[in-house]
Computed example of a mutant assay.
Amino acid sequence: MNDPKYGYPYANQGPYQGPPVAAPPQYYAAPPPPRREPSFLEGCLAALCCCCLLDECCCDPSIIFVT
């Protein structure tokens, strides 16, 4: 490879060993959103809805009020 059109000779490069190994990029997870405690009113409304649903779905008046 000592052609006269090049100003310097090429060095022997040896066998191909593949690309250099690099560490994977480090990704940082986004912090979770701040936790918000439910207010007293939200808790009361949830309990009321739960009681109403249980009453509609699970309570058979013929079992409770036997005549």
Rank of each mutant, 00 (worst) to 15 (best):
M1C: 09
M1K: 12
P4K: 12
P4M: 05
P4E: 07
K5W: 09
K5Y: 12
K5F: 10
Y6E: 04
Y8E: 14
Y8P: 11
Y8T: 15
P9I: 08
P9S: 15
P9L: 09
Y10G: 02
A11C: 02
N12P: 13
N12M: 04
N12Y: 15
N12I: 05
N12R: 13
Q13S: 07
Q13W: 04
G14R: 02
G14S: 06
G14Y: 03
G14Q: 04
G14K: 03
P15E: 05
P15H: 04
P15W: 01
Y16N: 07
Y16T: 03
Q17K: 08
Q17I: 02
Q17F: 00
Q17E: 02
G18C: 05
G18N: 06
G18V: 05
P19W: 07
P19H: 11
P20I: 07
V21F: 02
A22G: 08
A22P: 01
A22R: 15
A22N: 14
A22L: 12
A23M: 11
A23R: 15
A23E: 15
P24H: 03
P24M: 02
P25C: 06
P25W: 05
Q26M: 08
Q26V: 15
Y27E: 09
Y27V: 14
Y28L: 09
Y28A: 10
A29H: 08
A29G: 09
A30E: 06
A30N: 13
A30F: 05
A30G: 04
A30V: 10
A30W: 03
P31I: 01
R35A: 02
R35Q: 07
R35W: 02
R36P: 00
R36H: 12
R36T: 12
E37T: 15
E37S: 13
E37L: 12
E37F: 15
S39Y: 09
S39W: 10
F40W: 13
F40R: 15
L41Y: 06
L41C: 02
E42S: 04
E42P: 01
E42I: 01
G43R: 15
G43N: 14
C44N: 10
L45N: 03
L45K: 11
A46M: 10
A46E: 07
A47V: 11
L48Q: 01
L48K: 03
L48I: 07
L48P: 01
C50L: 13
C50S: 14
C51P: 00
C51A: 14
C51M: 09
C52M: 13
C52R: 10
C52S: 07
C52V: 14
L53G: 04
L53E: 00
L53Q: 02
L53K: 02
L54K: 05
D55Q: 06
D55A: 09
D55F: 13
E56F: 11
E56Y: 10
E56A: 11
E56K: 13
C57D: 01
C57T: 06
C57H: 04
C58K: 09
C58Q: 04
C58G: 05
C59A: 01
D60P: 00
P61L: 00
S62V: 08
S62G: 05
I63Q: 11
I64D: 03
I64E: 03
F65Q: 07
F65N: 11
V66R: 12
V66L: 02
